[in-house]
Design a protein around this nucleic acid. Structure first.
Lengths: 158, 158
DNA sequence: TGTGAAATGCCCGGCCC
DNA sequence: GGGCCGGGCATTTCACA
């Protein structure tokens, strides 16, 4: 990012491991990538400072949080101007059900990923928080049967 | 998950903080939620064992990895049977550009989030890895202008 | 919840490429 | 000279009472 330096094989190995285990001990990470612990610590700190690693976070099981119904909402917004788009995004991000918002090209303007407790909660969410808003046109609800995460993000082309 | 025990305010506070800083020192986490470090450590281990916390991971800046073009691909698959769906998902998950796959209801069967290096790479990806496959029907490409993540996942209803 | 031993993180030096 | 390696101390973790 700030440092547009190329990554060597050690950096790539570090990035791969840290994306699947963000809490691995530096000692173990160093052993896994084949450098001394002090060197490994320096590499990780460098990647962090350069903005390549943006943060660390715990992943939480949605079902444990009472979220059994996931959906993608395809939303049309009118007019498609900044004065309307920015408040809409802010409103959606403030909802406790919102997992992610994507501003996209195509017939629909936004794809919103939400997690609800039931289909009834989902219905309430769509009716009370989306279709009631004046800037919101059509809302198409796509229930999610299942989701999978891709592999770690590595330098492109791989 | 396995332990369907209710969360108290300390658990919720822990889960909120860990979802934005997965590498916080146990000592600091304990101070932030207002319990002794030993107690806090036990709480976190309990949440981990119960399957509420599923893991920890580092977040990586997509631009640093050379991914400047994100898109959502809406894919129709025929026939919509397990014998076709499972290999399709496996194929998509094996692509280095794939960030996430959602199996959804509606006109389209899958929404695939991909990160490419350029629009040219995106074109290649769609043509070589999706539309060439016999089970894949229409593929609609929605470029992503911008994305936002929702807040931490907390017990529902909040 | 508080304490203590073991382990870890991390700053420091010198060294080699 | 920039990055890599090993030593030493402060900090943290984690089992125990």
């Amino acid at each position: 990012m700030r440092d547009d330096v190329a990554f060597d094989s050690v950096d790539v190995a570090i990035l791969r491991i840290l994306q699947s285990d963000g809490r691995i001990a530096n000692k173990d990470l160093a052993a896994a990538v084949g450098v001394a612990p002090s060197t490994c610590l320096d590499r990780v700190a460098r990647l962090r400072r350069a903005g390549v690693i943006t943060g660390y976070l715990a992943e939480v099981d949605a079902a444990s949080m009472g979220r059994t119904v996931d959906a993608l909402l395809a939303v049309q917004v009118q007019p498609h101007s900044r004065g309307v788009v920015d408040p809409f995004v802010a409103h959606v991000l403030a909802l406790p059900e919102t997992r992610a918002v994507h501003h996209v090209t195509g017939v629909d303007d936004f794809i919103v990923h939400v997690s609800c407790g039931s289909t009834r909660d989902l219905q309430r969410l769509v009716l009370d928080e989306f279709t009631t808003r004046p800037e919101v046109g059509r809302v198409q609800t796509h229930l999610i049967f299942g989701s999978w995460r891709g592999g770690p993000l590595l330098p492109y082309p791989s």
